[in-house]
């Protein structure tokens, strides 16, 4: 029982990060129908920039804010420089563009910073908290709380603000949104910026636990994508549930079955979801139009 609780704690922590990556996917996918394979790089950048700013003497909070802002700016740049010029390109081209962008970001990071593993101190120390025979790191609570806060803020944004509703309208039908006067180009820019900022925020939260290096992005992107798929592409609720579920599945697999094949869970989940219920847990069913 203690072991199970322990596995769930670690599963939820990682799962919260997957959920944030999945949320980033969702935002961009809704605004532009692009699956952004560079999503994981945003998380990496959040961690890396914070690390180096902090090492340069910038206070941690400021360093983290800086990292999130810079990453958001890069997200916007990605949209302006690579996605918008390729508007209407086939899916294959868009996949290559975003994968190319992720390789580019990785290459640049490795040049500007380095190839080492880094961390900065946890926000509230490293003394584990005992809960019913299991332990949880204070930083894990930060990760979980942070993720939940992001989802809460986004929920308010989508349901209570005009801009949020404009994003939803664009996701639903871009042309119709344009017709009622929504600046869909700006919505796309906003979505990329927001998505990058959320990714960077996840990176800031999780780096004290999992460490960061220039190449952590790929796996995170794939896991986040698996989470988004599990929950159903395009729904923030699906991203949250899918992320937490995937994290727990991984932790339980590592605990009870095989730690080597822990990484395989995400991909089995992807394949299983696609075969059994291609629209995911909360996704809407769609039919092909001629």
């Amino acid at each position: 029982m203690d072991a199970l609780l322990q596995f769930l704690f670690s599963g939820l922590t990682v799962g919260a990060v997957y959920a944030l990556v999945a949320l980033g996917f969702t935002l961009i996918y809704n605004a532009s129908d692009v699956v952004n394979f560079a999503q994981g790089e945003f998380v990496m950048l959040g961690g890396m920039i914070t690390v180096f700013a902090y090492q340069a003497g910038v206070p941690l909070l400021l360093a983290a804010t800086l990292a999130i802002l810079i990453t958001a700016a890069l997200g916007v740049a990605l949209n302006k420089l690579a996605i918008e010029p390729a508007r209407g390109a086939p899916v294959v081209s868009l996949i290559i563009i975003t994968i190319g962008a992720s390789i580019l970001i990785r290459g640049a990071t490795q040049l500007i910073f380095d190839k080492q593993l880094h961390r900065f101190p946890a926000f509230s120390g490293d003394d584990p908290i005992r809960v019913m025979g299991a332990t949880i790191l204070p930083q894990s609570l930060w990760v979980l709380g942070g993720a939940l806060a992001v989802f809460a803020v986004l929920w308010v944004f989508f349901s209570r603000t005009l801009t949020g509703k404009a994003v939803l309208a664009t996701a639903n039908n871009r042309v119709a949104a344009q017709l009622v006067g929504i600046n869909t180009g700006w919505i796309m820019t906003l979505s990329f910026g927001l998505s990058a900022a959320i990714g960077a925020f996840a990176g800031v939260l999780v780096t004290p636990i999992t460490l960061v290096s220039y190449d952590v992005g790929v796996t995170l992107a794939l896991k986040g994508f698996a989470a988004a798929m599990l929950g159903g592409m395009g729904t923030p609720k699906g991203a949250l549930v899918g992320g937490l579920l995937l994290g727990c599945l991984e932790a339980l697999t590592a605990g009870y079955l095989s730690s080597q094949y822990k990484e395989a869970v995400a991909f089995i989940v992807i394949l299983g979801t696609l075969f059994v219920m291609p629209q995911g847990l909360f996704g809407a069913k769609t039919t092909e139009r001629v």
């Binding site: 690579a82 290559i96 563009i97 994968i99 190319g100 962008a101 992720s102 390789i103 580019l104 970001i105 990785r106 290459g107 640049a108 490795q110 040049l111």
Partner: peptide, 11 residues
């Protein structure tokens, strides 16, 4: 610079 160039070429 390999990764940098590869990514750039792809994009």
């Amino acid at each position: 610079y390999e990764q940098l160039v590869l990514g750039l070429v792809m994009v």
